[in-house]
Design a protein around this nucleic acid. Sequence first.
DNA 1: ATAAAGTATGAAGTATACTATATAGTTTAA
DNA 2: TTAAACTATATAGTATACTTCATACTTTAT
Lengths: 119, 119
Amino acid sequence: MKLINQLSKETGIPIGTIRFYEKSGLIKGELKPEVKTNNYVYYGEEAADKLRFILMAKAVGFTLHEIKEVIDMWYEKTISKKAQLKVLDQKLLQIDEKISELNAMKAQIFICKTNIQNR
Amino acid sequence: MKLINQLSKETGIPIGTIRFYEKSGLIKGELKPEVKTNNYVYYGEEAADKLRFILMAKAVGFTLHEIKEVIDMWYEKTISKKAQLKVLDQKLLQIDEKISELNAMKAQIFICKTNIQNR
DNA sequence: ATAAAGTATGAAGTATACTATATAGTTTAA
DNA sequence: TTAAACTATATAGTATACTTCATACTTTAT
């Protein structure tokens, strides 16, 4: 269990952003009931994993809302198996679409490069 | 050559957004000098191609600024071949990074699915 | 013991990317 | 010919995702 500063250093995500993600319901830390002099929040590996996932997903254009949909499936036990798998399968489709679009972009850029070289 | 309404219908991008992209320097229409009763702007296939490229690039998380960098190489003749190819090669690297991240996300989601199924 | 560094909270500010509104002129179809 | 539809311009407003600031308390290092 680590404090926000360590979590920030570990993931490369600024403290302010981590707090913003926590307020947005993407990650969750916990108070240690035995600590009574302060209200410092502690984060486990789960939070670190989620932050790393957020970084990846954001880099490929998913919104925080879309990311939350997946993350909620991650550890959520109250939703039916079927519903959980459905959400995840939808995301897999979206990911494949994005991969297709990236490949289409590559093709376009190759064409553009060829045009430039033949000038 | 088409007016903004037709361009919008062809690409699925709202007129307001097209105007915003033009103001941002991503696309460019032209006035017809022979038309003197109005100042309607006409767009060619180049603008339509660029808009389709913008759609793809945005879907995979590129910012308008990053997209503009590529688009400027597209038809720009004032920049040296070498500089143009350098920018495009950088984008190709970024695209490959994004594909890697998408594959990593797929792997994570598969693990998550397996966990759910084994509950 | 005290200054520096870390933590929590709330509120305001910023950047990006639109989206809507108001105004005014132009074109087109009934 | 006139009302509906289209176009241009400028300005303001909105949503998302942070980022900064102010305040106050706690911990840590010297």
